[in-house]
Design a protein around this nucleic acid. Sequence first.
DNA 1: GTGAAAGCGCTAACAG
DNA 2: CTGTTAGCGCTTTCAC
Lengths: 350, 350
Amino acid sequence: MSRIVNRGAASAPTLADVAEVAGVSRQTVSNAINNPDLLRADTLARVQEAIDELGYVPNRAARNLRTRASHLIGLRARPAPEGTAHALMDRFVHALVDTSRTAGYHIMLVTDDPEDRTGTAGYDDLLRSTAVDAFVVTDTHLDQPQLAFLESRRARFVAFGRPWADPDAGHPWVDVDHAAGAALATEHLIGLGHTRIGWIGWHKDSRIGEERRSGWSRVLKAHGLSTTAMASRVEDTIASGRSAAAVLLDEARPTAFVCASDTLAMGVLHLLDERGLRMGEDLAVVGYDDSLVAQCLPGGLTSVRLPLEQVAEEIVAALEGLLARPSYVGPGVLLPPTLRVRGSSGPRLG
Amino acid sequence: MSRIVNRGAASAPTLADVAEVAGVSRQTVSNAINNPDLLRADTLARVQEAIDELGYVPNRAARNLRTRASHLIGLRARPAPEGTAHALMDRFVHALVDTSRTAGYHIMLVTDDPEDRTGTAGYDDLLRSTAVDAFVVTDTHLDQPQLAFLESRRARFVAFGRPWADPDAGHPWVDVDHAAGAALATEHLIGLGHTRIGWIGWHKDSRIGEERRSGWSRVLKAHGLSTTAMASRVEDTIASGRSAAAVLLDEARPTAFVCASDTLAMGVLHLLDERGLRMGEDLAVVGYDDSLVAQCLPGGLTSVRLPLEQVAEEIVAALEGLLARPSYVGPGVLLPPTLRVRGSSGPRLG
DNA sequence: GTGAAAGCGCTAACAG
DNA sequence: CTGTTAGCGCTTTCAC
């Protein structure tokens, strides 16, 4: 062995060091790690022993260079705006990190570079430079141009969110059945005896917002109940939710509200607070997202809970498909949310 | 040039491709990227042109292998428990991602492998395998053994949280002055006219909890007010906060509470809700962490806000020191929190 | 089953 | 200021 090996404890042991200690070639050590079944049991044991003795850990950079893969997934996410109940990110991120780890991947966080107008050049570079193997993108409804750009660049990514513009988009996606969630909420209120159920949702250009709204209107219609003058479309802030509720309450006299988000639902509760009305008794309210706010609020806010752990699992599954076969698309996955019933929706009107 | 270059658009262009197009050597291209001032202006321009033309992006793995650095920072963090107001993570993580990016680093998320009893082997491997250059650890109060382990392994990391056990610990740290936050809250209540101010905090083994508590007791004593029978130490849950408040309220009749967390403060509000008392009028309440819950609650929960953006900046600064000089320690940094005044603390008792 | 050779794409050190 | 040489540590041929 002409190679100079083992330059002291200062630098980490390499394959060659392990090979020397185990009395085998470097290749055999590599096989012991990556294809253990290729080795005879006793050789494998000897190599393993040497690995343990030296505390050998394969060098990631070298492996990445050789295999042209980083085993890193870029997660593109935005911070929750302050003053908003929106807290799914924390839960989703952790679910994704956990699921990814079991699949051998790590999650790298990526945010938009404010300098970059398109908000995509950075992702492209990360992919091209082999910094990440693929992306998970989360705000697909907001950034249609970004999606198109990523696709045109043949970037590998899985979307949390349907490709609204193009149902047959060339990328895997996972989404929650938003209409089903709103339907669940509305059925729940009808079951409680409500017949005048209002909707406070987002502006029409929000696909998710329209999707959620459709669940509400579908169920009302199915029960022969009126949706006329019962709905409002506003910005996703507490203040907007509050004023929308004020108008609707005065003009249409609903006994319950389904809201497109916990933030809007909190707006309704702000109004109740101002008017001295009691949540759940004078007015039932259901939110959407099952945020920490919904969970912590005195009395509790009934809310639609997204199956984020399942979403993460499906995303990782799609990711594995994508990385095994670059052209992989796979069927879009639509997951049903559930309803968390709390004080804001009753129990009453029996 | 004997090397075979440019195997078609299929694979990404390399340094050699750029060098050929620009008519220079590979090293010159490397310099153009990493030490532009070494080149003559016209050479640099020619190389830059070739880079743009080819859409060249340096291969990360190759660079990492060569420089023995990944430009990746591992962030060790836990998910917020459900039913807890605790929402600093989202804000902190994003602050850290943003600050890191400007310093040329990306954030990789790491959670504990439930299989791993010590909860440290994974970090060690990541460091040794050059997957990450350093760590940011966040729950230092919870895991003293982990800290000791990381130090003993000479792992590079910066802690968000003081090294309570050993003030002269061998690693950089950044923390928030928790006592100052509680003091701020207590002063605020005294300024409002309160003289009987209770404390609902965490168990004695929580260093942060004791730190926060000391701010409350110090200020009361400084004003000649009594702390006797005014404090309770419980678990960080809404239910515990609620029952602690019930006992204290009945026995010591405080007119205000300072709480060690927004979660505990929510517990107090739950009790008020049950008893039909009005927050801010019948009882003032101040929380800690300025969670989304505090921000969204009708009336608003007055709360101590941690300067997480600054914490992130200081951490990145320490990280840069650490990566420049492996033995870098630097002085611990203690940052002052601020108070966000909302409805739960008055304005009253004038 | 195991070993030898080659090279992934880059940069540190030196020579010119 | 530019070019040449020599690897970083690993894995993919292909012999043996």
